[in-house]
Design a protein around this nucleic acid. Structure first.
Lengths: 362, 362
DNA sequence: GTAACAATGGGATACGGTTTCCACACCAGC
DNA sequence: GCTGGTGTGGAAACCGTATCCCATTGTTAC
């Protein structure tokens, strides 16, 4: 036995094992495998044969220590099962794989502690970028927190990307990929107004959530544009879930609130609202119209199919990855331009079958 | 300037920078950080101070090269956006994070090439386990392919886990986490039969897909148990998507096929079927009953809420991770027991509002 | 026939940590 | 006062790969 670990040892084979067995140097094996150095055909064959025999794969950790290595992008998300953001993740992962990048995933569960821990973990991993997904609560602290993340990551040669979150103020090294949230809400509300609806129950989401704020604001602007007075009493805040949609409608009906349409902050909320209307014996859209937001698959699977706002989630994911990839290749188009790091994608209304003009009631 | 890289260089700080600045040795810094060696309070304070100042995090690659490092589990999935398997992923990721493990994610898009490439990639990463998600097409080749994966990973000190796929035959080093697929289908069909339905349209899924085969078989067994002759003409195969549900029902109606209930292979298929029935002017469940399978959130968001089979997807994910974690701690309970590596979780029917006894037709 | 040069392979080093071994200081006990 | 333990900190040897630099060989031009 030599003093070196024998090649038939337990555990994975190393490049040395391959070199030894092929009767060549370690350097040659490395060159054959990475293929960025001229190598004779004979040597290549000898090495490849052994690689096959040993079922050898290079150690990614060692490789990235030595300078090479595949770039990795980290996706941090509140909840994997949220339909909307699953699509963003798909976009990121797909675009990453396309360029041979790897995707790490972590869920934060809306917990700032875990978010911090994960960002640090990703920093340890030396990821090329950290993509933070999902609407945020815009506390005062949020900006500071994210700015700290951004600088930390930047100092480590990484980069922070915010997707579907408000952009950072000031000169912070981060990229934001956003969609025209308010514009979508404006268009959606306009659609209802132009159909003749005047009394609209609005369920924008949690008052503190930035996406909810934008959606409410868009609706208000539409009312203003149509010269229809906006009644704050028609707004019910709450989480983006099925139960909230159901309960908000149920309560409103019980309170005798009069409305001919529901403007839901999310398709899932719309689904809950629809169920509650049915339970109360009202027909959709004959008695009450409903619209959603997000255009997740659920929207077209409901009966009637839901008119909603399409958000290009998957595209946002792709764009996010492209942004960091470009920046990595050195195409940092505008240097330090505090915008140019803020990309906004368009939204549009998808008309299906959940809206009708309000019934003429005696 | 010393010959070493200066500490204020671009890029992340190294442990040497910390040591230098704290006036201690590299070894001491390492010990303070990993905390598995007695260190004086004074030294700890000095080191931690510098760590904070420099915002230093250890290099995960270097660490795992040197033997330490956080274990990583790889989740390979056809399509992130599939609701059912998003839940499995959530279970795996949640359990992983709980123990401080990391989760890598890759999507295969049903492409064997990509599957192979990803398994090798994960092998390079030195992951503790590779979790393969989703029903498989049980070609002859499947067993060989998976056996090869299993041995490859095993040889590299990793481990293959199959979730929701058929177990491997023979003495292959892999773990399978499964659910009682056929039993669920049996119970679901029994539920319809005991409600009085006799003519049931069955949409089990793709004929080659193992999950579809099991669901069909369960239904057949139920018919047999109830002494109801099974009519193969009532079975329509197709993909697990909304469109298939819609089209299968539409066609069946056009062909004049008589049925009082639909047994869908998936909740999403059931949603499509429901829509098609409505489009044809039939009421659910008054005219036709519908049941699904999986119990994803959609099931309770449809109108009427769907009676379906609950599959403990998230639990499966947790169980899968627990299995590999246990094995890693050395609790390889039964050694080489070719079962004991096959865990089966139970399923059960969730009764909601989409089933009624068949209408008395004249 | 020899010099200059291209093509190719090998040895050594660096990457950033962890860990083993050792040296040193300090203290108690005789 | 000397010996033997005990607690601390440092030097150096790895971990597995990529790459720089140099040696060797074969080839072409003079």
């Amino acid at each position: 036995m030599s003093q070196r670990k024998a090649s038939n040892d337990v555990g994975r084979a190393t490049i040395r094992d391959v070199a030894e067995r092929a009767g060549v140097s370690v350097a040659s094996v490395s060159r054959v495998l990475s293929g960025n150095y001229p190598v004779s055909e004979e040597l290549r064959r000898r090495v490849m044969k052994v690689v096959q025999d040993l079922d050898y794969v290079t150690n990614a950790h060692a490789r990235s220590l030595a300078g090479g290595g595949t770039p990795t992008v980290a996706i941090l998300i509140n909840n994997i099962t949220g339909a909307a953001f699953a699509h963003v993740a798909k976009g990121v992962e797909g675009a990453a794989t396309l360029r041979g990048w790897l995707s790490l995933v972590g869920t934060t569960g809306d917990d700032p502690e875990r978010e911090l821990a994960l960002v640090n973990l990703m920093r340890q991993q030396g990821v090329a970028a950290v993509v933070l997904l999902g609407g945020a609560y815009d506390y005062d602290e949020y900006q500071l927190r994210m700015a700290r993340f951004a600088r930390s990551l930047d100092a480590a040669g990484s980069h922070l990307v915010l997707v579907g979150r408000p952009p950072l103020e000031g000169d912070v090294p981060a990229t934001t990929v956003d969609y025209d949230n308010e514009g979508g809400a404006y268009a959606m509300a306009s659609h209802l107004l132009s159909a003749g609806h005047r009394r609209v129950l609005i369920l924008p989401g949690h008052a503190e959530l930035t996406t909810a704020q934008g959606r409410l604001k868009g609706a208000e602007r539409a009312f203003e544009a149509y010269g229809v007075p906006f009644d704050p009493g028609m707004v019910r805040h709450g989480p983006y879930d099925y139960e909230h949609g159901y309960e908000a409608v149920e309560e409103s009906l019980r309170e005798g609130l009069a409305f001919t349409a529901v403007l839901a902050g999310t398709d899932v909320v719309a689904a809950g609202a629809m169920q509650a209307l049915r339970a109360a014996g009202l027909r959709v859209p004959d008695d009450v119209s409903i619209v959603g937001y997000d255009d997740i698959p659920l929207a077209s699977q409901l009966t009637p199919q839901l008119t909603t706002v399409h958000v290009p989630y998957e595209e946002m994911g792709r764009v996010a990855l492209r942004a960091v990839a470009d920046r990595r290749e050195g195409n940092a188009s505008r240097r330090k331009g505090s915008d140019g790091d803020h990309l906004v994608l368009g939204t549009h209304v998808v008309v299906r079958h959940s809206v009708q003009p309000p019934a003429q009631r005696g």
